[in-house]
Amino acid sequence: MRFKLFPVIALLLFGCSAPQKMRSSTSGNAVPTAISALKFLDEYEIPFGLKYSNTWVGGLSGIDYDRKNNRYYIICDERSATSPSRFYTAAIRIKGNKIDTVQFTGVHTMRMQNGKAFPSLKEGAQEAADPESIRFNPKTNRLVWSSEGDRAERNGRVNIKDPWIWEMDLNGHYLDSFALPRNMHVQTIEKGPRVNGVFEGLGFADNYKTLFVSVEEPLYEDGPRADVEYAGAPVRIIKYDVSTKKPLAEYAYLLDAVAHQPVPDNGFRVNGISEILAINNNRLLVIERSFSIGNAHCTIKIYRADLRDATDVTAMSGLNKNKTYRPISKKLLLNLDSLNRYIDNIEGITIGPRLPDGNFSLLLIADNNFSKEEKTQVFLFEIIP
């Protein structure tokens, strides 16, 4: 989802402690599967208007780390307005506990099934992509990415476009797609997913055998959106079998209330999931992003979510009223409102390389929406075991 964001804050935060566990990646390096706290280390700002290989660097909406090759994949959420829908590769050099440089090393056009680049909304709304998240699978050497779809009047007609999760090669060519659950089809009536509130987050788990996909806001049939005085709006997290590309289950995650009253009172406000990151087979880091017009900042929270006891709600509807299911449990790790630093529109998260003390790094990336009033930031944290 894109909207204008303003200053927030970041420094040092503690959560509840847990013994550190590790799992092996394909490169043989262990990565953390349990996180008790995050410690802020550094911020790096990518200049506004930066051009790379004749593209405008901005709208960076997802990031993932290829540990074996020390390479980052970063997706751009531009709908082919200035350049075709694309993703970048980058080298992020961490020196000590600081980000020394962020250097873009490649850009790749993402392509439709017919091999052509995606058109812009003006050129072809029915085919245009709305990229949001990207994950690298070292088992297959492929990338998975999500698009939110569309439900809006475009060029004089209402455009209905389903969201998707696609697999592509490292050059952006389409390879395969994940099956879309029946309740995730965009419709002309108020049923199914809300516009600009669908597949925002992706996370591989179980040694890349499963993929979690987060929906940003509640389906229409699951009740109203989060609001200032409404906590507990249910959003769905889908679990997929990577080999069959079919959904295995859906789980309900209950959002916090919108953090701040908008100005005016009836102004735009939102809270939803902007990204997820799997840390083991049943636990995710979940980013909740809240914004209210007229406020000087947005509120970013990172939760540790546990799916072990959650109910499969695939066959259920009306989750806001149905009290027979168990939602995903969640524990707050980091609330950026409690810190003292400007933080913009956080949409990407990944575990990075080890730091000098042996602990792993965590990186966040902010989407500047191609606006001079916002910043493209990369934040570096230490994962405390």
Rank of each mutant, 00 (worst) to 15 (best):
S80I: 10
L211I: 10
L285K: 02
K239I: 05
N141H: 12
S292A: 15
M110Y: 00
E347R: 11
P234C: 06
A179D: 13
I160K: 12
P84L: 14
N196K: 13
P356K: 04
R182V: 08
F360N: 13
K239T: 09
A37C: 14
T244F: 00
I165Y: 09
D306L: 07
K301A: 06
N69D: 15
E347L: 14
A129R: 09
S214W: 00
N271A: 10
Y73S: 01
I273T: 13
E229Q: 09
A91C: 02
F14Y: 00
V313E: 00
R194A: 05
K21Y: 00
T210H: 04
I383M: 12
W164K: 06
T188K: 08
E132H: 04
K51N: 04
T82Q: 13
C16H: 06
N207Y: 00
L170A: 06
G352Q: 12
I293R: 12
P19M: 07
D222S: 07
G358S: 10
D306Y: 03
N345C: 10
L219A: 08
T82W: 05
S274G: 02
I238E: 09
P7A: 14
T314K: 01
H108A: 04
D265Q: 10
N29T: 05
H108E: 07
R289G: 01
I238W: 07
N171I: 04
I302T: 00
H173S: 10
K323V: 01
A30Y: 01
S274T: 13
